[in-house]
């Protein structure tokens, strides 16, 4: 009797596993399929692309790369450079100042601290689009259109990253360490830079990546502020590609543009996926 139950249980489990793995493999395929087609198509010439569907890559990858890289109307090398500049600086500012703000609230008691914290929490979820009208007007008045500053500097105030850092500090930084540093003769500022920041390294790394990716992918605000060709970032160029008459385009080149746009993030992700995924959870809700 028990043996029969045992056997039934084992079969049941086996069936369950088969079903589950099928679902997982299907979803994974769904996620990867479009990117796979992208890579395949980026390796095909325009003629090959017109001729029909193919699941296998063809030999035109580097031709397409050369054509895309040297395209006259869409200056993708410039776009990549601009995007790197904006995303890199934004990531550094966001990470550093979020940590600084979180530390300021975590380590010190001052009047209004609670109000300050509540304030940041309250504005955390307000989307940036809703102040875009005033933002564009203000930047236009200040002559800051076609400048990277309005894209980089707002990164100093990043409520979500702040919240992540605050939670991280609570879990890793006992106040005694700060006090020990005080006794050791460290100034408040150097305690933050030399003791607290190194302790926060894992959180900093995760947030550097996330804020870099967010800024790299950002389209809405940059599109409103940047219209000079040499200032455009990658997402704006992609939008430009979409609004162009694509039928006249070398489609191999188009695929290559798309590939180039997502490649930096793809590479980062391939190497750091584990810590990135860990960071997803720690960021929003404590489990």
């Amino acid at each position: 009797m028990i043996q029969r139950k045992n056997a039934a249980g084992r079969i049941h489990l086996l069936v369950a596993r088969v079903v589950v793995y099928t679902i997982l493999i299907f979803l994974s395929a769904l996620c990867l399929f479009s990117f796979y087609l992208l890579i395949v198509n980026a390796s095909r010439s325009n003629a090959q692309l017109q001729a029909g569907f193919s699941l296998l890559p063809q030999g035109n990858f580097f031709t397409n790369l050369k054509n895309a890289w040297n395209d006259a109307s869409i200056n993708i090398p410039r776009g990549v450079l601009n995007s790197f500049l904006v995303a890199g600086l934004t990531a550094v500012l966001t990470t550093y100042f979020s940590a600084l703000t979180a530390y300021g609230i975590h380590a010190y008691t001052f009047r209004g601290k609670k109000a300050v914290f509540t304030c940041i929490m309250a504005v955390m979820m307000i989307p940036p689009q809703v102040s875009a009208v005033g933002f564009v007007q203000l930047m236009t008045k200040l002559g800051m259109t076609n400048s990277f500053l309005p894209l980089i500097l707002p990164g100093i105030a990043a409520p979500v990253v702040f919240f992540y850092m605050k939670q991280y500090l609570e879990s890793v930084l006992p106040m005694e360490i700060v006090e020990a540093a005080r006794c050791d003769g460290s100034s408040e500022f150097s305690t933050f830079n030399r003791i607290v920041l190194p302790i926060m390294k894992p959180a900093l790394a995760v947030q550097l990546i996330f804020s870099f990716v967010a800024s790299w992918n950002n389209y809405f605000i940059p599109a409103l502020l940047l219209d000079k060709a040499e200032m455009k970032t990658v997402p704006i160029m992609i939008a430009q590609l979409r609004s162009a008459d694509y039928s006249k385009f070398d489609m191999g080149k188009v695929y290559m543009f798309i590939l180039l746009a997502i490649l930096p993030v793809l590479i980062v992700y391939i190497f750091l996926s584990r810590s990135i995924i860990k960071g997803v959870t720690a960021g929003s809700v404590k489990g």
């Binding site: 001052f110 009047r111 504005v123 005033g134 105030a157 408040e188």
Partner: peptide, 29 residues
């Protein structure tokens, strides 16, 4: 150490004020 708490959060609030709050009010206006 009270003043350090304020000093450390100033950049955040300055940036928030200038890049979000003022634009927000301008938007409403």
């Amino acid at each position: 150490y009270v003043k350090w708490g304020y000093i450390f959060i100033i950049p955040f609030f300055a940036a928030y004020l200038f890049f979000t709050l003022v634009p927000q009010l301008m938007t409403i206006y």
